[in-house]
């Protein structure tokens, strides 16, 4: 179960209405390397982790990714909530608007909907942890591309926070991989 904190993990603000930037950032909501994929990946893989520590790391990071999904949602919504239909058309977000108005939906930057095949849950903890480390690197790259695309310093500030979290998570998954290898080696003794 979860306990909900009625505040964001990191406070966000946007400088001005910017549907073009929203269209790009939404990929970290529902894209292949986005926060929905990350949270569901870790919260699903945790069941087949072999040690309590490994389960706990996936639970903790999966939970934090839900908080990041909420940050990305808040960024996207604040960037589009006051946009006029003309601004939405000019930004190329009219395809999205036709189906969703200004509601949040899980799509990548090109509008393709989220699919479960973005993630794997393999039942092999070494394999899953390699996927998790790769996922953190892919998300870090995406945040770097979004930072380059961003023309809003307030949005860039939040993107920098989210990017740094990917680096910390990569380290934690790597340490967990070491622990899982150690656990597997200890089983060989018997």
């Amino acid at each position: 179960m979860w306990i909900y904190e009625k505040k964001l993990e990191y406070p966000i603000r946007v400088s001005y209405t910017n549907p073009r930037l929203a269209k790009e950032i939404i990929t970290q909501y529902g894209g292949p390397d986005g926060e929905l994929a990350a949270s569901l990946r870790y919260l699903t893989q945790r069941y087949t982790m072999p040690t309590p520590q490994a389960k706990a790391v996936l639970t903790d990071i999966g939970t934090e990714e839900l908080a990041h999904m909420e940050i990305v949602a808040a960024l996207v919504y604040n960037l589009i909530k006051n946009a006029t239909v003309e601004e939405i058309k000019a930004a190329g977000l009219d395809d999205y608007y036709a189906d969703h108005d200004k509601a949040l939906y899980f799509v990548n930057a090109a509008g393709a909907p989220w699919v479960a095949s973005y993630i794997q849950s393999k039942g092999d903890p070494v394999t899953d942890l390699h996927e998790d480390m790769a996922a953190e690197q892919k998300a870090r790259s995406t945040y770097e591309y979004l930072i380059r695309l961003s023309d809003d310093p307030d949005v860039t500030d939040a993107l920098r926070f989210l990017r740094e979290r990917e680096i910390v998570h990569f380290q934690r998954f790597g340490e967990t991989l070491n622990l899982v290898h150690e656990w597997m080696d200890s089983k060989k003794v018997f």
Binding site: R160, R163, R165, I167, V168
Partner: peptide, 16 residues
């Protein structure tokens, strides 16, 4: 909170 980590050794800021 401002930096995204409390650990100096894990802080890797990015510049475009």
């Amino acid at each position: 909170l401002m930096k995204g980590t409390i650990f100096p050794e894990l802080y890797r800021p990015y510049e475009p």
